[in-house]
């Protein structure tokens, strides 16, 4: 069985926009309200990251 990537704790205080998380998914390395802003902010850090949507609710959707 795989271990899921657990973003529960590191996303808890981010309710909108975007979060860049480190490639090992252990820490937030940049944030921004838009894709351009988070990309620019991530590039300023010089780190690699994966962009994740930040939301106040991820649950109980039918898409």
């Amino acid at each position: 069985m795989n271990q899921p990537i657990n973003l529960e704790k590191i996303l808890k205080n981010h309710k909108s926009g975007w979060v860049a998380v480190s490639k090992d998914y252990k820490e937030v390395v940049a944030t921004g309200q838009t894709i351009k802003e988070v990309t620019d902010n991530l590039e300023k850090t010089g780190k690699e990251g994966v962009l994740v949507p930040a939301a106040d609710n991820y649950q109980n959707f039918v898409t």
């Binding site: 795989n2 899921p4 990537i5 657990n6 973003l7 529960e8 996303l11 991820y58 649950q59």
Partner: peptide, 8 residues
């Protein structure tokens, strides 16, 4: 892997 996100 699946991704675990904040929920209840």
């Amino acid at each position: 892997p699946y991704v675990k996100l904040p929920g209840d």
